[in-house]
Amino acid sequence: MDEFVPFMVFMVAGNMLGQFFLGLGAGWAVSHLYRCYKNTRPDGYLLHFFYWLGLAGCTGLTFVNPYKRSFEP
């Protein structure tokens, strides 16, 4: 599903802009690049990367603020 969503987004955007085949090709290219990137990394790599950037929606008392880079006792 995570490889199909970028394909559909580009296909729909291309259709809305009147460039269906361009959107189709761009969607295939982005999905292919994403698949190659995902297969060369360990599981959960992108989730950890987005958390490090502060983009993951992790809430709770056990999650540390991702913008805090140094911890002092």
Results as ranks from 00 to 15, higher is better:
L55H: 05
L24P: 00
A56L: 12
G25L: 03
K68C: 05
M1C: 08
G60K: 08
M16Y: 12
K68P: 02
W28T: 03
M1K: 15
P6V: 03
K38C: 11
K68V: 07
D2P: 04
P6E: 06
L53A: 06
S70K: 09
L46R: 02
V30L: 03
H32R: 10
L33Y: 11
S70A: 08
M11Q: 02
C58M: 11
E72H: 06
V30G: 01
A13P: 00
K38Y: 09
A26D: 02
L61M: 08
V64W: 05
A29N: 13
K68L: 08
F4M: 15
M1Q: 13
G54L: 06
Y37M: 14
F71M: 07
N65H: 07
H48C: 04
S70M: 10
Y67M: 13
V64R: 09
Y37P: 01
R69L: 10
L22G: 05
A56H: 03
L61I: 09
L22N: 02
F49A: 10
G14S: 03
P6F: 01
L22M: 11
C58Y: 10
H48N: 11
F63Y: 15
Y34D: 01
L22C: 08
N39T: 10
Y67W: 12
F4R: 15
T59V: 09
H48G: 01
G44T: 03
T40D: 12
A26W: 00
C58K: 11
K68I: 05
F10I: 00
C36M: 15
R69A: 13
A26Y: 00
F49R: 12
L55V: 13
V30M: 03
T59I: 04
F50H: 02
W52N: 13
K68Q: 09
Y45H: 15
E72D: 14
A26H: 01
M11N: 02
G14Y: 04
V64C: 05
D2F: 12
Y37H: 10
A29V: 07
M16P: 00
N65D: 15
N15V: 10
V9N: 00
M16T: 09
Y45C: 11
W52K: 14
P6C: 10
P73Q: 09
Y37S: 14
N65A: 11
F21A: 14
C58N: 14
Q19G: 11
Q19F: 06
N39D: 11
F49P: 00
C36D: 12
G57S: 13
F71N: 06
L33S: 15
R41L: 12
